[in-house]
Structure formats: C-alpha cells, structure tokens
Amino acid sequence: MSKFKKDGGKPAPGINTSSLPDIVFMLLFFFMVATTSKETDPTVKVVKPTGVEAADMTPYKQRSEIDFLYLGKPLNAARAARYRSIGMEYMLFMDNVVQSTPDDLYSTNAIRNWKSDKFEAKKSKITKGIESVITCVKADEGAPTGTIFDIRKELQKIDALSIAYAVDGEIKK
C-alpha cells in the first residue's frame, strides 16, 4: 500500500564540515574590519540625544586624537540615590579613572588632571598639540548644559581647545 519505502538500517551520511573553518574565518574577518574597539564601559547611564550631519569620530579614534568624557546618572541605584540626596544628579565619568569620593566624581580639577595626564601618556605617539586633541563629551539628553560649559572652561584653562558633543547619528526625514 504505502508508496514510501522504509529506509532500512542504513545510517544517515555524515555532514562534511571541512568548509566550516572557512566560513567562520570569513565571519571573523568581517567583524575585524567592520567594528572598532570598545573603550571602557562607563558607570553612568548615557542616552545620547539624536542629531543629523554629525561628523564621524573613527579617524580621530584611530589616531588616538580623542578622549571620551561621560556625563550621566550613576548606573548603581544606591549610589545614585546617595548622590541625589546631596544635590548631585548627573556625574562625570572619565575613562580609566577610578572615582570613589564625590569630589572625584564631579571635580573640575579632575578634568584638567585627567586630560593632561592622558596627553602626556600619548605625547610620543601623536604629532598634534594638546589644542587639537578632541575631548568628546558624551552627555545624557537630560543633563544640564551648564555642566558642559563647566567642562569647556576647564579645558580652556589647559589650552585643550577642541571639544565634541556626541550624538546618536540618526537619519532624519
């Protein structure tokens, strides 16, 4: 009756996996080319505002002519509550700087020292002076603009005269 022949005790043929490494290597090379290395994960939450026609920072990153500065609410809820009680809602995060006390977290001196130290560390690698090393501020959309201008003032004092306001590049229209 049945039109389908029952397969006898023949085992299923094995799948040839010899081209698997090739496929995986292809994927690997794609990701190596298409991505850029991550900087440190900030301990503050930053939701960047959206904007159009923003410049791409990748070339500056490749030449390490850019430093990142974060401005947002602390990720740690208990910490955020503690600082809010003393009137500090938005806080600075500078990469690779361990901040433990409130003074460290929002201290204008910290910016100057951080920027100068970073510049001294990579001085031999770059050809440009400190005035053209960009300081990229990644601020939360709810942050007060006054803090941005505080940062500007500090950078001005050490002649670091290039600032960038980070946004999420979104194609409008």
Partner: peptide, 25 residues
C-alpha cells in the same frame, strides 16, 4: 574562539559628534 573574542571586545556603532572649537583664553 577568535570570532567570539572580537564580537565581545568590539562595537559596531560609530561615534558621531559635533566638533567645536573653544576660544583661547
């Protein structure tokens, strides 16, 4: 192993920003 290492340590999104000059003091 290499692929997963690169997936974890890198990021796809590009940093976009508006570059402005600060006047000299």
């Amino acid at each position: 192993l290499l692929l997963i290492f690169f997936l974890v340590t890198t990021t796809m999104d590009k940093d976009k920003a508006y570059v402005r000059n600060i006047p000299k003091l």
